[in-house]
Amino acid sequence: MKIDYHMHFEYGSYNLAWVQGFFDSAKRCGISEIGISEHTHGFTDFKELYYEDVICDDSFIGNFQKKWLQSNKFKCPLAIYIKFMNELKKKGYPVKTGIEVCNFQNQEKVKNILAKHPFDYVIGSIHFLHGWAYDSSQIKAEWNKHDLKEIYEWYTQEVEKLCAAGLYDVLGHPFNIRLFKFLPAFDATPYLIRVAEALKKANMIIDINTGTRYRYPIQEISPYPDFMKIAAQYKLPIITSSDAHKPEDCGAYIDDAIQYAKSFGYKTRIRFKNRQREEVPID
């Protein structure tokens, strides 16, 4: 069965007129079930955490990130989203309730917020490195100020901390630090192994995510092949996802993601319900 478990309603409102397009696109792609994993920056519950972690000074990245946090973020309480998702389920929509949580430093505070609400699954994603939103094209120039080995070390450390928190089911778009084509000339294998070991210890799943295929210059599915080989060796389970932010992108390149997973020997993927896992055929 086809499942797309990483996408976002956030560019519109929590109403049927907006979200119906996601379900229509899923049906056209032959997708049986979708999962919505709203970004935490949409919810007032997480506002304090962002201002604790994100650089908001008068530097190049600080000025951009201050404006980013003030631009249509923290639109509503998390409870509003949960209520809407429950209404969709009651109406019979084939949907699961997820959330994509940034790599905040105060994981105890994250735990307290998440504990108040029911989820089918929780994605943890590395969106910030030492307070810098490295995936923002508007501040891409910051990449030139850092040694790439330093970036890989920072990324790996953040994954290790995320895994150690014990709060997450899935690592979102692993190693998307390749998104702007800053590619290592060194052997990155030690970092890939550390991430795989942390995920294995935490019993977490990897997100085979096509968003980097159609939304970023790298134009490849995340995680890239070198990590996929190691993930398969460690027998890390998978989900497949489009990372759609618009209805027409729901299911984008999912067939490619399925074939990509199969090329590394995967025959099943995970389906979630109430944080419980079920292995299902990958197609």
Score class of each variant (00 low, 15 high):
Glu160Thr: 10
Ser222Thr: 14
Asn209Ser: 06
Cys250Pro: 05
Phe264Tyr: 10
Lys267Tyr: 05
Gln157Asp: 14
Tyr214Thr: 07
Gly30Ala: 09
Lys67Gly: 07
Glu160Ala: 00
Ser137Glu: 15
Gln157Ala: 09
Ile3Asn: 04
Val54Ile: 15
Ser32Ile: 02
Cys29Tyr: 14
Tyr93Pro: 11
Ile36Trp: 03
Ile238Arg: 00
Gln20Ser: 15
Lys149Pro: 02
Lys111Ile: 13
Phe180Lys: 05
Tyr155Phe: 11
Asp58Trp: 00
Pro77Leu: 12
Asp4Thr: 07
Ile270Tyr: 02
Thr240Lys: 08
Thr210Ala: 04
Arg215Asp: 13
Met1Pro: 03
Gly124Asp: 13
Ala244Thr: 09
Cys76Gln: 15
Ala133Pro: 08
Gln70Ser: 11
Ile82Met: 08
Glu248Phe: 12
His39Pro: 10
Lys200Ile: 02
Val195Lys: 01
Glu279Asn: 05
Lys201His: 09
Phe84Arg: 10
Gly30Gln: 12
Asn63Gly: 07
Ser125Pro: 14
Thr268Gly: 01
Phe22Asn: 08
Asn86Ser: 14
Ile230Glu: 04
Arg269Glu: 15
Gln138Val: 03
Tyr266Ser: 05
Val280Ala: 02
Ser59Arg: 01
Ser137Phe: 01
His117Cys: 07
Ala79Val: 11
Leu179His: 09
Gln219Phe: 03
Gly98Gln: 09
Phe74His: 07
Pro190Lys: 03
Glu248Tyr: 13
Asp135Ser: 12
Ile254Lys: 06
Pro225Leu: 07
Ser136Ala: 13
Lys235Ser: 14
Ser222Tyr: 07
Ile254Met: 10
Val159Arg: 00
Arg271Gly: 01
His39Arg: 04
Pro77Arg: 13
Ala115Thr: 14
Glu150Phe: 06
Val195Ile: 14
Thr97Tyr: 07
Tyr260Ile: 03
Ala198Glu: 08
Cys102Tyr: 15
Thr189Val: 09
Pro237Glu: 08
Val122His: 01
Pro237Met: 11
Ile254Cys: 06
Lys161Cys: 09
